[in-house]
Design a protein around this nucleic acid. Structure first.
Lengths: 174, 174
DNA sequence: GTCTATACCCGGATAGAC
DNA sequence: GTCTATCCGGGTATAGAC
């Protein structure tokens, strides 16, 4: 039924709001239900459980980041540097969603088909088709983002310079 | 009092065992106390709370990883590659401790003085004193480790090749 | 489809007896 | 210095009335 899908999207929307505004720790069935003006038990008439809601958010995250990457690279020459900037921007704009997408094993069976691949494609292309280099570049970007989000760099650290150093190193290999 | 310090180390030892064997989710005051043959409330006579125990584990982790890095680099020519291998080995040998050390902001005020700096030194040295390159290299290694621990790479991915590609790129800049 | 009520876990931490 | 008893919070999920 179409209304069932629409209801699932409504629930995902509420969950997304809770996640972005209050963080992963606050993403509970009770809080999501509260946003929708209902009680937690009522959610189980529409979704199987919390995992399904999270998978929906992760699929959304992949689609949104893929769109951002594709747009950034559309008219750019220096794809690696452009992509790195877009990657960082997405993660910093949606830190809780980014964490949800990366801090645990992916619930691949529950994701919308193809979304993971679509987000990965621009990275592989920017690495000139070299999958090993693409994985190294992804790891570099992910590491920079997570260390920044977790406040692990020293207070005065010049992160733009660190990003530039990493991108420059990776570019020479392309 | 010396006995108080010894008791703290005993508690840290039990906590370390719980963490390594059962993961961060199982690291509770109740579980730690159980290992020591006592009840959770008794722990509060020796430590201020869970945060203090975690900080002890993190300090230990820094000291152990620093020692491993120093030993690896002692007789090596290719410091960046050697250090990368040692970094990966430490993280894979102690995945839960590594997560505890990196997934949240550091409780710097509770750490033993100097341990963070000691672990960072070999990385900076391997980067030839270039702190931006050192941070990029750290981010690359951290990203590789976390993506591997979280099972984010495709099943058949050649991670050795990805590590090699990243190290080679960083080396050219040194 | 939503509700109330509930059952069952888990956690950190404290009070006060001994 | 350890205990029991307890308080507070959190969570997922189910049963059954409406």
């Amino acid at each position: 039924m179409a209304s069932s899908v629409a209801r699932t999207r409504e629930i995902a929307g509420a969950a997304r709001a809770v996640l972005e505004e209050e963080g992963a720790a606050a993403l509970s069935m009770r809080r999501v239900a509260e946003r929708l003006g209902m009680r937690a038990p009522s959610l189980y008439k529409h979704v199987a459980g919390k995992e399904e809601i999270e998978a929906e958010l992760i699929s959304d995250g992949f689609e949104e980041s893929a769109a951002a990457f594709e747009e950034a690279c559309a008219g750019a020459h220096d794809h690696l540097a452009t992509l790195a900037a877009a990657y960082r921007a997405f993660a910093l704009a949606h830190p809780h969603l980014y964490r949800l997408m990366t801090e645990r094993p992916l619930p691949r069976a529950l994701l919308r088909p193809g979304v993971e691949e679509r987000a990965a494609r621009p990275v592989i292309d920017a690495a000139g088709g070299d999958v090993d280099l693409a994985r190294a570049a992804w790891a570099f970007a992910h590491g920079m983002v997570m260390l920044e989000l977790n406040g692990r760099f020293p207070p005065g650290a010049d992160l733009d310079a660190a990003w530039a150093a990493g991108v420059a190193a990776l570019q020479e290999r392309r």
